[in-house]
Simulated assay, not measured.
Amino acid sequence: MRALTVVPDKPGSLDVGSVADPRPGPGELLVRGVALGVCGTDKEIARGEYGWAPPGRDRLVLGHESLGRVLTPAGGFAEGDLVVGVVRRPDPVPCGACAAGEFDMCRNGRYTERGIKERDGYGSELWTVEADYAVRLDPRLADVGMLMEPTTVVAKAWEQIQRVGERAWFEPRRVLVTGAGPIGLLAALLGTQRGLDVHVLDRVADGPKPGLVKALGATYHHDPVDRVLAALRPDVVVEATGVGSLVFDAMAGTASYGIVCLTGVSPAGRSLTVDAGSLNRDLVLENDVVIGSVNANLRHYHAAADALARADLGWLSGLITRRVPLGRAAEAFDAGEDDVKVVIALPGD
């Protein structure tokens, strides 16, 4: 079969080549790949900045935003079921969090991840997955189900926001999402599903993003962040850019008892001048909270599956701005001017 592989730490090693067909073990599904989403992590691995091959191997099968159909069922799944595979696996020790099923909160870093860390990903014509780490999707999501993994990230973020907020009376009304990439737009989707007044801030003024936000019933902004924050005073900020200056502006610009959830990863090596005393004073005196959120466990996958099943299919389709075949997968790693989500179509569906 064909697969999208890379040599971690080696820039320019991205390749579509032949690998052995997988054989499902006990309790595993054999799945025919349908599509694969491409995200910033995949691009970092392709640039040689990140990633680990399976032990004893040089190449890693890339891809963690999966979508496929079951060929050989197991564990309550049926042939033809539309499924995605969970990305992370608990560490083998395990730590207390992994032992409790909260492997997204692994304490010792010995977890593994499909397509990222020491386990082959889902970027192949066929793949296997343990039935316990597969999640069934509504059949209506056959064209957009590869959005499941990024939706799990924001499902976890909203869960964490809710848990933090409920340390006291908590009825948020207004949320600002910074960044209108896939994570930001999906965070906005879940915000509207919660009945909140959702605002999205991004630097572009045209292209598909403003229309996607408007179609949610949310409000799009491209003014300077300090102006937007001053006008809105949001109860919640979901930060999805990783831009350092935006992070600190968000921390200083919420309403009292505000919660800022960071989902974007900032690049290292950049310095900012921050009035740490003023920021600390505001956080303490207003009972504000800043939390980071990354990855997802099985609970978040099921929450994401429910959220996608409730979403408008036309809107979800609008997030996918380019589809390329597996044979031209390298094109998915070159950013287009109006790209939101780029998808690699795998043969067989």
Rank of each mutant, 00 (worst) to 15 (best):
G17N: 11
D42A: 10
A74V: 04
R107G: 00
E65P: 04
R107Q: 15
E79H: 07
V16Q: 01
G96F: 11
D81P: 02
T5S: 11
A78E: 15
S13M: 12
L141C: 07
G85S: 15
G33M: 03
T112C: 06
L147F: 13
D42P: 11
A78K: 12
L60G: 05
K117A: 03
R69P: 03
A97C: 12
R47P: 06
A74G: 12
R140C: 03
A131T: 12
G123P: 06
L67Y: 09
Y50S: 09
E113M: 14
I116N: 01
E118F: 04
T128N: 01
N108G: 10
G37V: 09
D58R: 14
P73C: 01
G145F: 06
V135I: 15
L67E: 06
A46W: 07
G51A: 04
G101D: 13
V31D: 07
R114S: 09
V129G: 02
R47Y: 10
A99S: 14
P90A: 03
K43W: 08
P54H: 11
E118H: 12
G121F: 06
L67P: 03
G96H: 13
P90Q: 03
L141Q: 01
R23G: 12
E28H: 08
Y122A: 08
G51V: 02
A134K: 05
G17R: 14
L4F: 13
D15I: 07
G68H: 06
L126Q: 11
D42R: 10
G56D: 08
D91F: 05
L141Y: 05
A20H: 12
R140V: 10
R57P: 02
P54Q: 07
G85L: 14
G76R: 11
T5G: 03
L71H: 05
K117G: 02
E102H: 15
E28R: 02
K117N: 11
L4R: 02
T72Y: 06
A97Y: 04
L71E: 12
G63N: 06
T112V: 14
C106V: 08
A35P: 09
G75D: 11
A20S: 15
M148R: 09
G40R: 06
K10S: 13
D21P: 10
T112L: 08
E130T: 13
M148N: 11
W52A: 14
Y133I: 04
A78W: 05
L82P: 08
R89F: 15
F103M: 08
L147D: 07
L4M: 14
V83L: 04
E65A: 02
R119Y: 09
C95D: 08
G76K: 13
